[in-house]
């Protein structure tokens, strides 16, 4: 049984241990919209990248200081893993009936061609998983740099959560309008049952900062933006940024169960204008 072979943890290309697996789980869940994720391990932590349709990317950052043990033997360790299975494994004990009992997690990776090994222990029960890995491909580079940002809004997640959950799902796109003048911040959908707008006042209690210099209006695929719902549901704050190319960057600030402040970000390309 693999739980006895805890020999020489130093031999692994990557190994980590955390007393409460829920912290990691929470962040992985936030980007769990596709089967496969690319994991980048470096001394500062893990970055988990998930992509779709060559125009949408999500990154979850899991800092190394959240772990009790964290060791990466190379500058960067990269592999692809089945994210949905990883999430299912970490969640296997479900929600504990006694809140003080949390699952302890150990992870090992031995390099190309080896599986990601996971040991979870909760209340004396042990789960042992071996998830196959694949060689990582290149990930998308959005070149989203702070200097090119035109508009930026930071708001409480609560408000956006409500709005996002009620967007008309029959609409193909979500149009985001930002403007220094009314209606300031408008989300529009064009669905089967007509046109809907949601306007948010710039001086709303929910808006923490509103730096909008120029009126912009861009359309994004609603189906892609919906992938950020899980992150939004876990988040406390959201930052909305658009750059001069109309690219959208959504950043979610998530407080984990043990009060670590973590970030998950999403990049999305705009839809081309047909007319």
């Amino acid at each position: 049984m693999s739980l006895t072979q805890q020999d020489g943890e130093g031999d692994h290309v990557f190994h980590a241990k955390i007393d409460n697996a829920k912290n990691v789980l929470q962040l992985l869940k936030a980007v769990n919209f596709s089967d496969v994720a690319t994991v980048f391990g470096s001394p500062s932590g893990l970055k988990v990248t998930v992509e779709e349709a060559k125009c949408f990317q999500a990154n979850a950052f899991i800092q190394s200081d959240m772990f009790q043990e964290f060791d990466v033997k190379e500058d960067v360790v990269t592999f692809k893993v089945f994210l949905n299975i990883l999430v299912e494994c970490l969640n296997i004990f479900g929600v504990s009936t006694t809140p003080s009992v949390t699952p302890t997690l150990k992870m090992y990776y031995n390099g190309f061609g080896t599986p990601l090994e996971i040991l979870l222990e909760e209340g004396g029960v042990i789960t042992d998983c071996k998830i196959r890995t694949q060689e990582a491909d290149d990930t998308l580079e959005f070149n989203f740099c702070a200097t090119a940002v035109i508009n930026k809004v930071i708001m409480k997640a609560e408000c956006l959560r409500e709005i996002f959950s009620e967007l008309d799902g029959s609409s193909e796109v979500l149009e985001i309008l930002l403007s220094p003048d009314p209606p300031y911040f408008r989300l529009s959908t064009y669905g089967n049952y007509g046109t809907n707008h949601t306007d948010i006042l710039k001086d709303s209690d929910m808006v923490e900062s509103f730096n909008v210099t120029r009126k912009t209006s861009q359309r994004y695929k609603l189906s892609l933006l919906k992938h950020s719902n899980k992150a939004l549901n876990a988040a406390q704050k959201v930052s909305f940024r658009t750059d001069d190319r109309g690219f959208l960057c959504l950043q979610f600030m998530i407080k984990t169960e043990d009060s670590y402040i973590c970030f998950v970000e999403f990049f999305c390309c705009p839809e081309e204008d047909d007319d």
């Binding site: 089945f82 789960t127 042992d128 998983c129 998830i131």
Partner: peptide, 11 residues
């Protein structure tokens, strides 16, 4: 084909 997973209860 993607994962082997086992849970052990003892005692």
């Amino acid at each position: 084909d993607k994962v082997d997973i086992a849970t052990y209860f003892r005692g």
